[in-house]
């Protein structure tokens, strides 16, 4: 947690304040978010977990500026979000690469839009491809590389514009188990190296406990935050997942989710 110079209180990197989102549905309005408040501090990696339909993607899309909230506001560095912008990167579950651009060309997109000089673009692209372990694939088209590599490219593309916050919506959801755990290690190392503030949605409690410093648990109908966990572990790596403390922590969060599901089921 860093203190902003000249201010008495720390300012969150990303903050959702009293966020509401209604969607018109076939049987009345769907309340996708109801009075949701979350904070992500500078340099933090925070995870959102919750059952399907509890508004996780909606929250991320509003933070990215792709959707408007019905009420409430999202602040980045204390300033309200009014639309999409390169200061908030977003990584989707489905691969969203430009199929006609090479891996390097995809990473360059945001930099071209920014109007950087060609030399600067080339240098930054090289830098991020290096960090992401993609240097070998720079000239490959997305369809020529594996799903894991495609998702790395998407992360590299989002990071290349150096956003204040990286938003990730189930980024590893479509990957097989081995690739997924490799990608988790990889995200941890990127986070350590770059210190980018990250807010990540995941279905896997284990993934959330392994990766994040804090976890918000959400519940559906209406979509809301029901709990916040501070994750106590320091050394993040895959060896952690066999530790009894880790397992019991995962169970604790899991139980809460299950309980929530059974409450919904008996309604």
């Amino acid at each position: 947690m860093t203190l902003e110079f000249g201010s008495a209180r720390p300012i969150p990197k990303l903050e959702a304040v009293a966020l509401f989102k209604d969607f018109p549905g076939t049987s009345g309005t769907v309340s996708a978010l109801e009075d949701v408040a979350i904070r992500v501090w500078p340099g933090e990696l925070v995870c959102l977990v919750g059952a399907s339909g509890c508004g996780k993607s909606t929250l991320l899309n509003i933070a990215a500026g792709l959707e408007d909230a019905t009420d409430g506001v999202v602040l980045v560095d204390g300033y309200p979000v009014t639309g999409p912008g390169a200061d908030r990167g977003l990584v989707f579950q489905s691969y969203s690469l430009y199929p006609w651009r090479t891996v390097a060309g995809n990473v360059a997109f945001g930099l071209e839009v920014k109007g950087l000089k060609d030399d600067d673009i080339a240098e930054r692209v090289r830098h991020y491809l290096g960090i992401m372990g993609l240097a070998k694939f720079a000239g490959a088209l997305p369809k020529q590389i594996s799903g894991g590599m495609q998702q790395r490219t998407a992360i590299a593309r989002a990071l290349a514009t150096e956003p204040k916050v990286l938003l990730l919506d189930e980024p590893f959801g479509a990957l097989d188990a081995q690739t997924r755990s490799a990608m988790q290690e990889f995200l941890l190392s990127v986070h350590r190296e770059l210190g980018t503030t990250m807010l990540m949605v995941t279905h896997s409690v284990e993934e959330a406990v392994l990766l994040s410093q804090r976890i918000y648990v959400m519940a559906p109908n209406p979509g809301r935050v029901i709990a916040e966990f501070k994750v106590p572990f320091q050394d993040r790596s895959h060896s952690l997942v066999h530790e009894p403390e880790f397992l019991s922590f995962v169970r604790q969060v899991d139980d809460l989710l299950r309980q929530q599901a059974s409450v919904v089921g008996t309604q």
Binding site: A64, G65, R88, G89, F92, S96, F109, G110, V113, A158
Partner: peptide, 22 residues
């Protein structure tokens, strides 16, 4: 795909850029 357009917006593109580059 809508996600391709949305991804472009989050990379700083405006509507004209999305039209031309996506």
């Amino acid at each position: 795909p809508k996600t391709l357009i949305n991804a472009s917006y989050t990379l700083g593109a405006n509507r004209r850029v999305v039209m031309r580059k996506v």
